[in-house]
């Protein structure tokens, strides 16, 4: 297996909330399909999907090899993100750099 470095931000391709998840998952279960810069797509878990839109930029991070997305727009979600990201020291810098770059360049697509 080749290790993959995951950039810290991606774009929501689609998302759903599952109200009868399989055993071992909490309900409701928020799932998003997120496309990272470069085109790779990941299935991610999230804390919620309220206010989320297809095409929105989200932060993506791995905790114990499980990928999570979180909304970039809201402060609390950002805090959650930082708290989780704090566990992987090196990655924080990479993610911060990536986000800063993204914010500087603006969204890659026109608002829709």
């Amino acid at each position: 297996m080749t290790p993959t470095v995951v950039p810290g931000a991606g774009e929501v391709v689609s998302f759903t909330t599952l109200y009868s998840p399989p055993e071992g998952f909490r309900s409701p279960l928020h799932i998003a399909l997120v496309e990272l810069e470069g085109g790779a797509r990941f299935v991610c878990h999230g804390a919620e999907t309220r206010g989320l839109k297809i095409g929105a930029a989200v932060a993506v991070e791995a905790v114990d090899e499980v990928y999570y997305f979180s909304h970039l727009g809201a402060l609390d979600r950002a805090r959650l993100f930082w708290r989780r990201a704090g566990r992987a020291g090196d990655r924080v810098t990479a993610i911060a750099r990536s986000l800063a770059k993204r914010a500087w360049k603006g969204p890659s697509r026109g608002a829709s």
């Binding site: 009868s20 998840p21 279960l29």
Partner: peptide, 8 residues
């Protein structure tokens, strides 16, 4: 492994 089912 992410809990995806057919309905999901």
């Amino acid at each position: 492994s992410y809990g995806a089912t057919m309905p999901a």
